[in-house]
Structure formats: structure tokens, C-alpha cells
């Protein structure tokens, strides 16, 4: 077993995996890493299952010291990581030898970094997953849904002897990309006013600072829903719901399982991965896409993880 001690952390540094499934009918939320793409690449670099438990570090403020010679991988945002003061760029595996300190200082590009370890970080599975959901008191290091805290010990049991790897420039997701976020059109799309449909896809939305793992509010033109009030129904990941104030909210991994606001549709997984790397105030646009095309694109992308 290899161990690391947490020297500094924040409430936004959480143990995550791909999420909790098969329990949504009980009101249990999905949870899991917000940028599944970077999380998957971090695991890929170590030959892990793509859903192995990783550390999700949002914005920085996280420091660990190795208690043994460790092998780790870093993907996602560039949060100014340093190993004993030397800069460490993401999208690679690296060694952190006994006594060395890994520190995340501040966001330089993107918002969330993913730190992976061989075989995944050790933690008990709760309802089938290690994902931390603070609100539901589920997952995390002790299974009680707590954020990572100073003094806690991280460990992993996988093999630390492995060649170091780095993603090629073609493999690396471009976090500075300014492409629109693809949205699969939903059933209520025709119940919004014509002007609102135009505005939804032709105006610029800015990300509100009122954002958490449940959802991110988009600020901009107010959208008008003209349909009947809805009865609560299941909410998919990435659903873009429009409450009566007309400001859309993108619902994320820790969303409630059912809800009754009308929806434009749902962002695609690739759009969600991009959104998870945007800071408050960032400007985004939405682009309608049909389900079949979005599905093909996602299946194509997932093939990239098959090559080793």
C-alpha cells in the first residue's frame, strides 16, 4: 500500500468516481466527477478502470505529502501544480517520492483537476460508489460524504511500478476551446416562445457565481415557457431547466432526482465536461443537436480510451 498525507484542502476537494447508479429511484443522486473526460484520462494514464476513485480538486488549495514512493496521474485543469516548488503540467503520470510535496496553487487554465492513483484511491463503496455527496452524507474516504480534510491519509493498493506516460497533443482535451455547448433538444422545447427559442441558441450566456455540484445558473435573456405547469419527473444529467424567472440552470451530478421545471433539453456529456472547466463569469453559447448525432459522437469519443 502507498500513502499520502493531506496537508491542505478545501470543501471543494472531493473523492469522486463515475457516480452512483441503480439507486436513483430511491431519491439518491448520481454524484461523480463533474469533468468525466479529464477524470477518465487521469485513470487511463495509469491503466485503471475509467471509473476508479480519483481526487477532484476545484480551483486549488490542495496539498499532499507522499509517505511512500508514489505513482500518480494528473489530468484536467492546470491549477498551478508544483512538486517541491517545480511546476507540474497536467495530462501525465508522474512520481511523487517519499517526502515530496504536491501542491495546487491557483487556476491557470480550467477549474477542476483530477489526481489518480494506481487502482484508484482506497475508500469503501457506499451504495455501489465512492463518489462523495456531502448533502446525502454518502461516499468519500470514510463513506460519510465528507470533503477531504487536512490531516487525512490517502492510500492506494495498485502497482506503483509502471512507465511514465503523457497524453499526445491530439489526445488532450482543449480546455480553452470556445465552441458552443451542444444541447440535445427535449420534449418541452416547443412550449417556449419563438423569441425565447431564438434567444436560447443565439445569445451569449454567462455563468453565474451561484454554482455548485447541483447546478450552474446561466445569466442572460429571460426565457418564456408557455406550456402548462409540469408534474415532477426524472431529471437527466445536464438537463437545462428554466424556472419561472427565465434564467436557465444546467443540472449537474449532484442534482435532485426529480423536478418539475420545464427544460430546453440536456447538454451532451462532452458539453458537460467543457462546462465543468469554466469559471464563474465565463461566456458560453448553446447549440441544438439531435439525439442520434450526439450519441454517435459520444460513442466515437469513448473509443479513444480503448487504445493503450
Amino acid at each position: 500500500m502507498s500513502r499520502l498525507t493531506i496537508e491542505a484542502s478545501t470543501p471543494l476537494c472531493l473523492l469522486q468516481d463515475a457516480g452512483r447508479f441503480g439507486v436513483r429511484h430511491l431519491g439518491v443522486t448520481q454524484g461523480g466527477g463533474l469533468d468525466w473526460r479529464s477524470m477518465s484520462w487521469a485513470n487511463w494514464l495509469l491503466d485503471n478502470h475509467l471509473d476508479a476513485a480519483v481526487i477532484e480538486i476545484t480551483l486549488g488549495g490542495f496539498t499532499v505529502v507522499a509517505q511512500d514512493d508514489c505513482l500518480l496521474a494528473l489530468a484536467g485543469a492546470d491549477l498551478g501544480a508544483q512538486v517541491d516548488g517545480e511546476p507540474l503540467k497536467p495530462w501525465r503520470s508522474f512520481r511523487l517520492n517519499k517526502g515530496q510535496r504536491l501542491q495546487f496553487t491557483q487556476p491557470l487554465l480550467g477549474a477542476r483537476a483530477y489526481l489518480a492513483a494506481p487502482g484508484g484511491f482506497d475508500a469503501p463503496k457506499v451504495l455501489g460508489s465512492r463518489a462523495t455527496v456531502v448533502r446525502e452524507e454518502l461516499g468519500g474516504l470514510d463513506g460519510m460524504g465528507r470533503a477531504l480534510s487536512k490531516g487525512a491519509c490517502l492510500s492506494y493498493s495498485g502497482n506503483s511500478v509502471m512507465l511514465l506516460r503523457e497524453l499526445s497533443p491530439e489526445q488532450r482535451p482543449d480546455l480553452s476551446l470556445d465552441a458552443p455547448l451542444d444541447l440535445v433538444l427535449g420534449a418541452q422545447i416547443g412550449e417556449f416562445s419563438g423569441q425565447s427559442l431564438f434567444d436560447a441558441f443565439n445569445s451569449v450566456w454567462s455563468l453565474d457565481s451561484r454554482a455548485d455540484r447541483m447546478g450552474i445558473r446561466l445569466l442572460g435573456t429571460s426565457l418564456q415557457y408557455q406550456g402548462k405547469p409540469m408534474i415532477s419527473e426524472g431529471i437527466p444529467l445536464g438537463a437545462v431547466q428554466v424556472p419561472p424567472d427565465g434564467q436557465p440552470i444546467v443540472l449537474l451530478n449532484d442534482r435532485q432526482t426529480i423536478g418539475g421545471y420545464p427544460r430546453l433539453g440536456a447538454l451532451t456529456p462532452l458539453a458537460l465536461a467543457r462546462l465543468a472547466q469554466c469559471l464563474p463569469g465565463a461566456q458560453v453559447r448553446l447549440r441544438p443537436v439531435v439525439q442520434e448525432i450526439a450519441h454517435r459522437e459520444q460513442v466515437e469519443y469513448l473509443r479513444r480510451f480503448l487504445s493503450r
Binding site: G186, A187, P236, G238, A239, R263, A266, A294
Partner: peptide, 10 residues
């Protein structure tokens, strides 16, 4: 049967 997301149907 309605579309709600890439991999979800209502």
C-alpha cells in the same frame, strides 16, 4: 416516449 438526454428517454 420523449427525448430527455443523449442516453435517457422519458
Amino acid at each position: 416516449v420523449e427525448v430527455v438526454a443523449l442516453d435517457c428517454l422519458m
